[in-house]
Design a binder for these strands. Sequence first.
RNA 1: GUGGGCGUAGCCGAGUGGUCUAAGGCACCUGGUUGUGGCCCAGGAGAUCGCGGGUUCGAAUCCCGCCGUCCACCCCA
Length: 426
Amino acid sequence: MGRQEEEGKSRFQAPRGTSDVLPEDEPYWRFVRGTAERVSGLFGYRYIETPMFEDAGVWLRTSGEGTEVVEKEMYLFEDRGGDRLALRPETTASVCRAYVEHGMASRPQPVRLYYFAQKFRYDRPQAGRYRQHTEFGVEAIGDGEAAVDAEVIDLLATFYQALGLAGLSLHLNSIGDRACRPAYIDHLRAYYRDHLSQTCADCRLRYEKNPLRLLDCKQTQCQPVIAGAPAITERLCADCDAHFRALRSSLEALEIEYELDPHLVRGLDYYTRTVFEFLPPEEGAQSTVGGGGRYDGLIELLGGRPTPGIGFGNGIERTILNLKRQKALVPEVEAPRVYVAHASSEARVAALRLARRLRDGGVAAVLGGGRSLKAQLRHADALGARYVAILGEQELAKGEVTLRDMRDGQQHSVAEGEVTAAVAAE
RNA sequence: GUGGGCGUAGCCGAGUGGUCUAAGGCACCUGGUUGUGGCCCAGGAGAUCGCGGGUUCGAAUCCCGCCGUCCACCCCA
């Protein structure tokens, strides 16, 4: 940033990995957000908003030391008072912090929350991956039943359906809990110990730091090793196994198709049992549109009583990317209904007043002027205005307005007081 | 963080060492007489050729660094 200031030459640009949402994209954002709110409401979820930055400990303590998010992707800073803060890299921990802080354990359980939030990660950008992105997410805290897992997945599937996004596939896995995962990891390590020489360099690191990730490696040389690796779903403890079975039968009852993916692992350490992702049909690395899972130990890590929870995050930029790819139709944002033109400078004030009057009547009106009537009509056309109200000497003299219908070019005189009604019809 | 591609007006894009004080299209503005859109016609404005340095008599065109972007890895939404 200092560069531009020092040199005083380059123009400013949005920081790497960030972007501006321009009016052309507004319809998409409006549609996606509106749909998210509507579907969340249908499922009884209430809106929550947490700060964009908080005590870095919220994430340092919960996300896991070996994870990328904590190790190198957080925007960490110290404020003027010396507090160690971080830009929100992940929303679940924030929401859980709020749950604990506001004593939500004393509300009817589970507490169902949804949010629209920006997240920040210092990552190398590419298509579908940004340093700032927006997420629609949901958390159901306080109920460990598999039925809630199914509900959360159903909510996300309903959201996609309402958007008209087709062809997404749901990948599902269970990664066990504190009772059975450590034993599984031991098994996995034992298996890999004999195969490390056949794996890629990254996998040798994963073996040490994040063994579950071994299963997710895409290197071809590692595939045979992965294929022979023990599956966690075959080593779940009785409780986790029962939970996973209950979830699957719930999904089947809801007729939600899923694909069991024993290699599905999520990036944060706090996940337990259920993990899932929705993937679009297209190829590409940055493909996951939405994903989530259960986090039964997270509230405790944040100082609350042991409380189960489950949620998902859905990337809005990726959602919109997919809507565009599928050429989905999204509702257009309405063009102004009336363009108020004035044909003489004497009529300027009258135009101002007419515009005000229209708006008072709930009609969207854009004020023209400052150029020829021809130019104003051209302008009105470019804006897509349905009507042009013309005020000039003639109209002023009679207290009327010439109202032009831009669809067919028909125009007629209307008394000034009747313009709103004339234009509002239909 | 690693490897690679790309970077010419708001957008698309020609031009790859001199004829470039940079083509064309879209968009924008004005006009085509006297108060009227969309088509057409004419005109206009708009370019530090991403930024900085170097090579050369001469660079948008070659080299280096930086920035940005895209692709793959990594990671994830």
